[in-house]
């Protein structure tokens, strides 16, 4: 499922300017998600192309997402990102999406859309 379709089906709010390169990212197909609030965990265990769900709003999360090549970040529980983080996200071309839902609910809905947490049939 394309990221922009996920945004519209789950009522996510996109933050930051959308220019051409980030528009490309919204057209990207998403197949898997990863949820964690621990940066070290995401560094160690997320996979390229994962949609990252977290309630961290610390600017450091952009560096992690960029390094791991993640498809985007969904910030949950209605939390607002710091301005510095949005600016960094624009620089690094990482889509920042906001949801009012808690992790469990949001992931449940994503799962029903076919975004799973496992690679292949593992």
């Amino acid at each position: 499922m394309k990221l922009k379709d996920i945004i519209s089906s789950l009522n996510l709010e996109a933050r930051g300017k959308i220019d051409k390169s980030s528009a490309d990212k919204l057209d990207k197909d998403i197949t898997r998600g990863y949820v964690s609030d621990l940066l070290s965990d995401v560094m160690a265990n997320s996979e390229e192309g994962d949609l990252w769900i977290t309630l961290q709003t610390h600017p450091n999360i952009i560096a992690v997402a960029s390094m791991k090549g993640l498809a985007g970040i969904v910030i949950i529980n209605g939390r607002q990102p710091e301005e510095e983080m949005v600016r960094k996200a624009e620089e690094e071309n990482i889509p920042i999406l906001l949801s009012k839902l808690p992790a469990f609910e949001l992931i449940g809905r994503l799962y029903k859309l076919g975004i799973v947490g496992l690679k292949g049939n593992a």
Partner: peptide
């Protein structure tokens, strides 16, 4: 303010 923290990384982890 929600999200404001001066916590070092070890605390966050």
């Amino acid at each position: 303010e929600p999200g404001y923290s001066t916590a070092p990384d070890w605390v966050r982890e």
